[in-house]
Every structure is written in structure tokens, then in C-alpha cells.
């Protein structure tokens, strides 16, 4: 059984994206182990003279390193990924690079009709950058709209079509994790390249 890290893209106390990941954790428990990861309490990212990464981020990086893949649930703030999530990703691409070649599945929930569509597109672009360089599963949107009314009292998705779609996507993701292992042409070089980017960047 694969182990996955599920990053809650919101630092708010109440988040339907957290709720969505809690649902996935419980719903996919028979086939996979999913551990939720919070991003709040990280300091605001800033380059520093000794290139230090906060302890919390180093812990996160360790867990991501050990995981078969990462699921990220992102809300949409101002047509884009939350500052808090960008902040976490910045720390996780500074002195450590746990995302390099890591399979990632993106999901997202929003109160309105769009289901964080623009934030998800933005997140793909961010994860594609040289210091993150994740392997994001293509063609696989899961946009949960009207998220405040999407769950029942026990935290299950009410809409059967949604559940079916998410089942299919997660099945695909497990396969994608396996396939990604074969995309190893640049594997040994990728970590080095990601690190080099930051070295050159260092002033």
C-alpha cells in the first residue's frame, strides 16, 4: 500500500480543502495511506545569509521525500494559489528539494461555481518550475464547486458523480506513480540541477 502526503493549501482554521483531503484519507483508506500535512505557522519565506530552512519545513520535506506521491488541495485567492501555499513551496525548494520528480495530484475546492480552476492552473505552472520540478499528473482536474454544501454530516461527498470522478482520478494517480518511476532519463540529474539553480541564485 502506497503512502501519500496530502498538503492542505489553506492556513485557515476552517477549510473545505482540508475537508476534501480528510474525505480522501478516509475514503481511500482501504487502498492507500494518506497523511494530511498543514502549512500554517511557517515564517514568511525570505532568502537568508546562511541558507537556513525552518525546522518545520525540513520535517515536511522528510515526509514528502519518503512518500510515494503528494496530493495538494488548493483554494483560490485572487485568481491564484494562496500566499500560504506559495510560501510553503518556496521553503520546500530552497535548501531542500523534496518535490523533484515527485508525482503530484492536484485537487481543489471553492465556495463558488469554479472550484479553484485558476488556482489549479497556476499551481501546475509553479510545480513545473526548476527548483520544484514535480511530476504533476496531466489532464486530471478535480474541481469541487459549491464546497460548503458538498459534504454530508459525516464528511462524505454528497454528489455520486463527484465521488466516481475522484475514484477514477485516484486510481489513475496510483498508476501515474508507477509510470513516473519509468521516467528516469533525467532522474539522476534533476536533483543536481534543482540545487544548482539555487546556488547560482545565491548572492
Amino acid at each position: 500500500m502506497n503512502k501519500y502526503i496530502a498538503i492542505v493549501g489553506s492556513n485557515a482554521d476552517k477549510s473545505t480543502n482540508r475537508q476534501l483531503l480528510q474525505y480522501m484519507k478516509q475514503h481511500f483508506a482501504p487502498v492507500a495511506e494518506i497523511e494530511l500535512m498543514e502549512i500554517k505557522d511557517l515564517p514568511v519565506y525570505a532568502k537568508n545569509a546562511d541558507r537556513k530552512t525552518p525546522e518545520q519545513a525540513l520535517e515536511m520535506a522528510k515526509k514528502i521525500d519518503a512518500a510515494a506521491g503528494v496530493i495538494i488541495a488548493t483554494p483560490e485567492y485572487d485568481h491564484s494559489v494562496t500566499a500560504a501555499l506559495l510560501n510553503a513551496l518556496s521553503w520546500l525548494s530552497y535548501s531542500v528539494h523534496p518535490f523533484v520528480d515527485k508525482p503530484v495530484m492536484i485537487v481543489g475546492a471553492s465556495y463558488g461555481a469554479l472550484g479553484s480552476s485558476r488556482a489549479q492552473g497556476h499551481l501546475r505552472q509553479v510545480l513545473d518550475s526548476p527548483e520544484l520540478k514535480a511530476r504533476v499528473m496531466p489532464s486530471s482536474d478535480f474541481l469541487l464547486s459549491h464546497s460548503l454544501t458538498a459534504f454530508d454530516d459525516t464528511g462524505n461527498l454528497i454528489d455520486a458523480d463527484n465521488t466516481k470522478l475522484l475514484d477514477g482520478l485516484f486510481q489513475d494517480f496510483e498508476k501515474f506513480v508507477e509510470i513516473t518511476k519509468q521516467l528516469n532519463g533525467t532522474l539522476s540529474q534533476d536533483k543536481v540541477n534543482a540545487t544548482n539553480v539555487s546556488w547560482q541564485d545565491k548572492k
Partner: peptide, 18 residues
């Protein structure tokens, strides 16, 4: 540009101001 996008610190400011 950080990771193909704006810095988290700038995004945070814009979020407070929206």
C-alpha cells in the same frame, strides 16, 4: 520571480489588501 510566480510575501500583501 520565484518558482515561476510572484513571491509568497507579495501575494500575502495582495491578499491582505483584497
Amino acid at each position: 520571480e520565484h518558482n515561476h510566480t510572484i513571491p509568497a510575501a507579495l501575494k500575502s500583501v495582495i491578499e491582505w489588501l483584497s
